[in-house]
């Protein structure tokens, strides 16, 4: 059974079992990026603060994240007496599932031929592109809010309410920031957007305002400092995950880091030309996934850098920044892009 799928202008021709095997491999690769991101964050934060960071487990502390996960999984299964059992265990699962499913959208390369089979180096290339990521991001949001509400603790409640208000506020700006790119490309498929950038210039040049808005909103959406009010340690302990320990905490933690990687990946795809290398048009196919991962981790490093630099915002500052600065700016960007696209 061959499925020829019309996606924008491109045709992805894959037999169904190739698509399944490919999806399993890419999902597992996505999982291995979580300890990588955790290690990079902890080592870099250590260096930013004039200390070594983890340096005992494995060479240069690279196995520390794996050791942490193993330790967390062996912890006692515990939930407070005031919590709702089903939702308490469902919430971390939802967070992980949504994060991994979003990873599917990042294209790691073009269609290549492996053992005579055409394989597109992406988990999924659908005609709705970024909307798929937004839809799954909203499901991840259920994970946070249900986790906070089902714990039966006041810090968890406060964290859940903060998460709800913060995530929805910045989602609007995030969506509007991409409208300019979509107007220029005329397609929602992320593979099409990358190919457009290879033929023209990268969108970080032509859509710089959109890029800035997207990166700031992505930091808020993934609860990164300076927007980490959802789990502001000094105010509400750990927000929605106060009552979680062991596997549940590991799930939330993993989902958070994977969300950061996915945000970097989407920014790479849409604004940094995906797998394209400047001034090297005929790069071999196998190098493409490494280029995407390299650019993605540049974003991860940038997020860590920002975390080490800026103090946390106050909640009213967070809200007025999102609604009074980012949203009007994103609207203006969409308007100007529309005029330029049609007139030029």
């Amino acid at each position: 059974m061959t499925s020829a799928l019309v996606v924008g202008e491109t045709f992805a021709v894959e037999t169904w079992w190739v698509a399944v095997i490919k999806a399993v491999i890419i999902a597992l690769v996505g999982f291995t990026l979580i300890p990588a991101a955790v290690t990079i964050e902890r080592k870099l934060l250590g260096r930013f603060q004039h200390r070594y960071g983890p340096n005992r487990a494995g060479p240069y502390g690279t196995l520390q994240a794996g050791a942490d996960i193993l330790k967390l999984l062996g912890k006692e299964n515990f939930r407070p007496s005031g919590s709702a059992a089903f939702l308490f265990y469902l919430a971390p699962m939802l967070a992980v599932i949504a994060a991994v499913a979003t990873f599917a959208i990042i294209p790691l390369g073009d269609v290549v031929t492996i053992f005579g089979q055409p394989v597109g180096l992406y988990g999924i290339d659908v005609g709705i592109g970024p909307l798929y990521a937004f839809a799954l991001g909203s499901i991840a949001f259920y994970g946070l809010v249900l986790g906070g509400f089902s714990s039966g603790s006041k810090y968890s409640y406060l964290g859940a309410m903060r998460a709800a208000a913060q995530l929805i506020s910045y989602e609007v700006s995030m969506g509007l920031a991409l409208v300019g790119v979509i107007m220029a490309t005329g397609s929602l498929s992320l593979v099409d957007i990358v190919q457009y950038q290879q033929e023209h210039t990268w969108f970080i040049v032509t859509q710089f305002v959109g890029f800035l808005i997207f990166v700031i909103a992505a930091m808020a959406e993934t609860n990164r400092a300076p927007f980490d009010l959802v789990e502001a340690d000094s105010e509400i302990v750990a927000g929605y995950m106060t009552e979680y320990g062991g596997g549940g905490f590991a799930s939330f933690y993993a989902a958070e880091y994977l969300n950061m990687v996915v945000a970097g990946g989407i920014a790479t795809t849409i604004f940094l030309g995906g797998w394209a290398i400047p001034f090297w048009g005929d790069a071999p196919d196998w190098i493409a996934p490494f280029v995407v991962l390299f650019k993605t981790f540049l974003f991860v490093i940038f997020f860590v850098w920002i975390r080490a630099t800026l103090p946390r915002l106050r909640y009213d500052q967070l809200m007025s920044f999102g609604w009074k600065i980012l949203l009007p700016l994103a609207t203006l960007n969409a308007l100007v892009t529309a005029i330029v696209v049609v007139v030029a």
Binding site: V20, A23, V24, A27, M93, V96, I97, A99, G123, I124
Partner: peptide
């Protein structure tokens, strides 16, 4: 279809974590 596979893999890992 790949989205369903991703969700299935993620569900397995999430259940084993929790």
């Amino acid at each position: 279809l790949p989205a369903l596979v991703f969700i299935a893999v993620a569900t397995l890992i999430a259940i084993s974590f929790v």
